[in-house]
Write a protein that binds this DNA or RNA. Structure first.
Lengths: 282, 282
DNA sequence: GTTCCGCATGAATCGATAG
DNA sequence: ACTATCGATTCATGCGGAA
């Protein structure tokens, strides 16, 4: 098996996107800097300027994506003066004007969202995962993300040690770790558009934008081995490391040299043999 | 204890709203007819005309709501030609122009949503619960909706008999049934903005009615006993029956005489003593 | 080798205080 | 008045050390 080609590029994302070929990418998945967040790294885009700032990127992404490819955008609006900002709503409307189809909105339910108590709101425990496409007819490999059915499966998963969850599953090819191999032959069902997955809060290096399980799920759902995955805001490299583990080629772009270095290091330590290392279930 | 006043009005919702006094309502909670759905009942509003159709209602709701009151709108966009419609996004932007504040978006995760399989999408297992306010400073009684913490609590809840869950909680006022009352003060935490509740509803007659647990949760959160709750699209009466059970006054408006009759019947059978009849937890 | 418990840590938000 | 900074609040998770 040919090993995956992983390109981690240090540079301005818009410039690098401009250099990529038309219709060359199967899946774009990214979590761009949120408005007014991470100021030290990205300069902090003001909520009022966010749409204007982001649209040139989506224009290039529309160009480089294959017609049967998919763009997954992880984003959530910030609270400003007690109100939710509307830049995500406006962004969707503007992207449609560019030619994107807004196919679906998945919900990422973050079970361990940031704590806090305020007089007028509860903890924000979800983020948007917006799915955009170029045409109605895109690749979707639904069987790759089926989950075991029923409560008993949940209980078993809950009691698994992390070692079990990470265990190499190449031997039985079941799609699950060794200790859950007896699920093979059990009834498997399709998931819904609500994903339950915790944030990873113990990252030693730098805080990752999303946990491994997220890109993993969408890569399984929208690509085959050998396809090309793109993340124009790579951060600490999650999209590329996961792609490499799953034998997908990937291109990651990161403007910050510190993050770029971390991303390269994280990728080096990955063997490209496919392993199951996270599991989303309801 | 004075019993709750429940008005179930047969008539055109916009006309009836016009007749209500300014600043007289503490909570508006409703699930309006969705675009192009329930044609036989409401005439089927086309997605392209939905915002235009709905804005006169929200204008009146803004007038009748108290300045410290809240409006909860249960809505979800339909899929049209493989794409999500944008009328909900546009509605939010237009309501802000009317003067509404878009305070928060809760997610209703429908745990047992209807199964189905399509080539290009999964089951839609969530709906929006949009929170709008007139000012930043609205009433919110967070302690009324606290939930038991953690896995061990979940396990106990799972093993409770349904009798325990339904048990009258007037005696201890804890918001929970007798058998869980000893948790109070020890392990109660605040919920997040993701609500997990099944779609089970008592009334099989009304197609889009929400389950009792939804209005119950928001009524607990945003009103006191004796406050006034309004539902301009009452359907089979859920908002009013729940309000009555919880000793809140309520006004329900329904244009269809069949549904109106059902709503009246459902309300008659309700004693106005407060009972806990549903529980949302994560 | 297990299981259990303590502890640090997050893509946060509000209100008060300071310039 | 308007903006910038800071402290307080809070809970699911997974690691590491202990039993």
């Amino acid at each position: 098996m040919k090993s995956a080609d992983t390109k981690i590029i240090l540079g301005d994302s818009l410039q690098v996107l401009n250099s990529l070929s038309d219709n060359s990418i199967d899946l774009i998945i990214t979590s761009p800097p949120y408005a007014d967040q991470r100021k030290s790294t990205y300069g902090g885009i003001h909520p009022d300027k966010y749409v204007e700032w982001f649209l040139p990127f989506t224009e290039q992404m529309l160009r480089v994506l294959k017609s049967d490819g998919t763009f997954i955008l992880n984003i959530k609006e910030k609270v400003v003066e007690g109100e939710r900002s509307t830049y995500v709503l406006e962004l969707i409307l503007e992207m449609k004007k560019q030619g994107w189809l807004w196919t679906e909105e998945f919900i990422w339910h973050k079970k361990n969202s940031f704590p806090g108590k305020w007089p007028n709101r509860f903890r924000d425990a979800w983020e948007r995962l917006l799915q955009f496409n170029k045409t109605r007819y895109f690749n979707m490999y639904q069987d790759n993300v089926r989950i075991p059915v029923g409560e008993w499966a949940k209980d078993r998963l809950k009691n698994l040690s992390s070692t079990d969850k990470i265990r190499d599953n190449a031997k039985n090819g079941s799609g699950f770790g060794k200790n859950i191999s007896n699920w093979v032959g059990r009834e498997m069902v399709y998931p819904s558009n609500v994903l339950h997955i915790a944030t990873e809060c113990n990252n030693k290096n730098h805080s990752a934008a999303f946990p491994d399980g997220l890109p993993e799920w969408f890569i399984k759902l929208f690509t085959n081995e050998g396809d090309v995955v793109l993340d124009p805001f790579l951060g600490s490299g999650t999209t590329c490391t996961v792609s490499k583990k799953m034998n997908r080629n990937s291109i990651g772009i990161e403007i910050n040299s510190e993050y770029h270095t971390i991303a390269v290091e994280n990728c080096k330590s990955i063997s490209s043999e496919p392993k199951l290392f996270a599991q989303i279930y309801e």
